[in-house]
Amino acid sequence: MKKLMLATILAGAVALPAMAADYTIIAPANPGGGWDQTARTMQAVLQDEGISGNVQVQNVPGAGGTIGLAQFASQNEGNANALIVGGYVMVGAILTNNAPVGLEAVTPIARLTGEYEAIVVPAASPIQTIEELVEALKADPGAVSWAGGSAGGADHIAVGLLAKAAGVDPTKINYIAYSGGGEALAAILGSQVTAGISSLGEFVSQVESGTLRLLAVSSEERIEGVDAPTLKEAGLDVVLQNWRMVAAAPGLSDEQKATVSADIEAMVKSAAWQEQLATKGWADTYLAGPEFEAQLAADITATETVLKDIGLVK
């Protein structure tokens, strides 16, 4: 009798995971950052929409997401229940850190959201337009200090691309790296630096209140509701989207990959997801399948080139 009960419990313990479409999402960053928020938003939507019964988020912080990525790839071979959130920053971090595990080690599922870079100056700055900023940069690159996110991240890469497009030696840019958006923003507001660069969302409320002047954005075309030219309009051929994606474990079968892709697509199409994007101010840049894979490959090549130009990767 006892044995039977134990066997039933054991069978239950083994059978349960197979029945429920459970996911564990790795957020390869500390709580609070963009990847963590993306993972936790996914958790809420997947559960509330009934796409998955139980979703857990696990933070594996470190080194621009490369530690989480390496751990994810090595521990989840063929595990269709494991997901990882990542983004453009990872592409650069893998290169600058010489990470042993790259994005080719996981199964990319879809690009979820994206933000464009914005270039701002404090309201009191004499610089009025992006052209004037570029002129100043050409005249003396060292005198133009840029506050932005971590070294080798999207912000740094954007400044490198901008300098190159303007015909300035990218190794000569005076880029001041800050660990978080908040600290960089404080430096810009306090006029400690010449200009600031970050995701547009970081600056929106400051621009609206008139404490910062938005000079340009890094999108292909003008963004609706944003009163600023693109870098392209200013004659600088720079387009950069700081995107976030979700990927699955390596070694999945085609059916497994299709199931995960379908779940993610259902999540993205849900009203709850769209509502979350709206409250958080994230743009829906959903892209899946071969198109996403092609774009990923293109980004990796372009990033490698510019990091070499800046001198961060040999």
């Binding site: 500390n30 709580p31 609070g32 950052g33 928020q37 978080g180 958006g181 908040g182 600290e183 923003l185 404080a186 507001l189 409320s205 400051q206 609206e208 209140s209 404490t211 409250t279 958080k280």
Partner: peptide, 26 residues
């Protein structure tokens, strides 16, 4: 200012957004 200066503050920012509150100068 809407400036999250610590990890805790960054998470709180996310929390405020749930209440429809956009921290910022206004």
């Amino acid at each position: 200012l809407g400036l999250p200066t610590t990890a805790t503050a960054a998470i709180m920012l996310a929390g405020f957004q749930q209440f429809g509150l956009q921290p910022g100068p206004l």
